[in-house]
């Protein structure tokens, strides 16, 4: 289940105090979900006792974000047949590993995003994923081409 910014917002102090560096609590909530801000950057939430309850709930809510990779990518190996559609379709593999994954073979580079290990999809180097980092774009090519919905993104 993707976590929505609204759910995060509801548990923030909602004072728009800007201590986090954002104009509004809502803007902050968006960035937390996209991993551009850490929840700890909302100092009132952690310093003021009256928010203790909300803080606990928020940390619980955000727990899955930690488990998922930094792009919010989750692979359900149980559903994966190792078809490699996701690997070959990935535009990063196509440009950085044109004669390996980009052409349908096993990777010829050391640090592909994905590779098949023991018959299922393993995430090797998520940093290369286009959903990651500053200039990220909302790529969904791998997820869209997995017939058994084994790939999901936290942010939907």
């Amino acid at each position: 289940m993707p976590i929505t910014p609204m759910e995060v917002y509801k548990l923030l102090p909602k004072t728009n105090c800007k201590k986090c560096g954002e104009q509004t609590c809502m803007a902050f909530a968006f960035k937390v979900i996209n991993r551009e801000k850490q929840i700890e950057e909302c100092s009132p939430l952690f310093e003021e006792k009256k928010y203790a309850n909300q803080k606990e709930k928020l940390l619980g809510l955000l727990e899955p974000l930690k488990e998922a990779t930094e792009t919010g990518l989750i692979v359900d190996e149980e559903r994966c047949t190792g078809c490699a559609n996701c690997i070959v379709v990935c535009p990063v593999h196509a440009s950085e590993d044109p004669y390996g994954s980009g052409s349908g073979y096993g990777p010829k580079i050391e640090d592909p995003i994905y590779r098949l290990e023991d018959g299922v999809l393993k995430i090797i180097n998520v940093k290369k994923c286009r959903r990651y980092g500053k200039n990220r774009i909302l790529c969904v090519a791998c997820r869209e081409n997995c017939p058994s919905d084994a790939i999901s993104f936290l942010e939907g």
């Binding site: 047949t81 490699a84 098949l116 290990e117 023991d118 018959g119």
Partner: peptide, 12 residues
Amino acid sequence: SRAYNACRRGAG
């Protein structure tokens, strides 16, 4: 101990 690049069936 490990199989790379094979699908589920193949790795099995």
